[in-house]
């Protein structure tokens, strides 16, 4: 078990012939991901890597091949259209890697998601991986090893940091998800926490947040009220100044709201085990597992 994806998941790549798309498609294939088709407008009928059929539209791909998930590498200008295309084609899981989508475009994506059967991860994220089974995204596969801890994060490389520790500590991972660093994202921490609580293989969850917004606080409310499994939390940005956008469009402290200390206080109160610095994430998880 794991959540959302496993070795049977059939994956479509939107933007498969682009620079990023083609590079990461090959990496995902190396990892063992079952990539079954690609989409690039006006390249329909060709083959990617001499094996994977390319279609002009998602609908065309779907009418030919069964698709469980899609990953989007389309440039920011067209990305929201690609996501909505996937939603309207009823693809169950949509992973959007693209960085730099305007917030207003994401609002229309969110409207399209409401009431649809699709779960969206991202944008501006590393993607999702179920260790040793399926990688849909840009994370380095080799640091992941099958185990018992799930990772949820708003960041990219900071997630790799956590995963690397979990693997080295012998805990290993079930499924790891980078939910994205933008102000408006497809799904928040909450969506996946619920899934992990119900996943028999997952024994604990690492939650990596950062300054800005309130989703860490909301997630910790759920931890307090419904979760039996331990959750270890870390928040990046204790030293971030107010009003400055720290790389991610979503990482900004505004009007004194969304600070790291405020988030940590609420998370701790709600029973999340706090990792004081990113180097002790695995250590904190080991302690938390013993207490539970």
């Amino acid at each position: 078990m794991s959540i959302l994806i496993n070795k049977k998941t059939s994956v479509l790549v939107q933007g498969i012939t682009g620079k990023e798309g083609s590079f990461h498609t090959l990496k995902c294939l190396e990892y063992g991901t079952k990539i079954v088709a690609g989409v690039t407008p006006f390249k329909g009928g060709s083959l990617f890597n001499d094996a994977i059929p390319v279609f002009n539209t998602v609908a065309e791909a779907k009418s030919n091949i069964k698709i469980d998930a899609t990953v989007i590498f389309v440039p920011a200008v067209f990305a929201s259209s690609s996501v909505i295309e996937a939603i309207e084609s009823e693809i169950p899981l949509i992973v959007c890697i693209t960085e730099g989508i305007p917030t207003i475009d994401m609002m229309s994506v969110k409207s399209a998601l409401r009431g649809s059967g699709s779960v969206m991860i991202g944008p501006n994220c590393p993607g999702i991986i179920t260790a040793d089974e399926c990688k849909i995204g840009i994370m380095p596969g080799f640091i992941h090893k099958k185990g018992k801890i799930a990772v949820l994060s708003r960041s990219g490389t900071l997630t790799y940091e956590a995963v690397n520790q979990l693997t080295n500590a012998g805990l290993g991972e079930t499924t790891c998800i980078g939910i994205g660093g933008d102000p408006i994202i497809g799904s928040s921490f909450l969506t996946f926490l619920k899934m992990f609580e119900n996943d028999p293989e997952t024994e604990g969850v690492v939650l990596i947040g950062e300054i800005g917004g309130t989703q860490e606080e909301e997630a910790s409310e759920y931890v307090k009220n419904y979760m039996k499994k331990p959750v270890v939390g870390f928040i990046a940005g204790k030293t971030a100044p107010e009003g400055k956008r720290m790389g991610h469009a979503g990482a900004i402290i505004s009007g004194g709201k969304g600070t790291a200390s405020e988030k940590l206080k609420i998370m701790e109160k709600n029973g999340v085990h706090i990792a004081e610095n990113p180097s002790v994430i695995a250590e904190t998880m080991i302690k938390a597992l013993k207490k539970h």
């Binding site: 840009i138 994060s153 708003r154 960041s155 990219g156 490389t157 900071l158 997630t159 940091e161 660093g181 990596i208 950062e210 300054i211 870390f234 990046a236 940005g237 204790k238 030293t239 971030a240 400055k244 720290m246 790389g247 991610h248 990482a251 790291a260 004081e276 610095n277 990113p278 180097s279």
Partner: peptide, 29 residues
């Protein structure tokens, strides 16, 4: 640092060891 989250976490860790970061710099993917 590469990556915004890791860059922030690096700044935080430097602070924890008693020094202060001069900047946030994400060299990107």
């Amino acid at each position: 640092v590469n990556g915004a989250g890791l860059a922030m976490a690096t700044m935080d860790t430097i602070k924890e060891f008693g020094a202060a970061p001069a900047n946030f710099l994400d060299v990107g993917g």
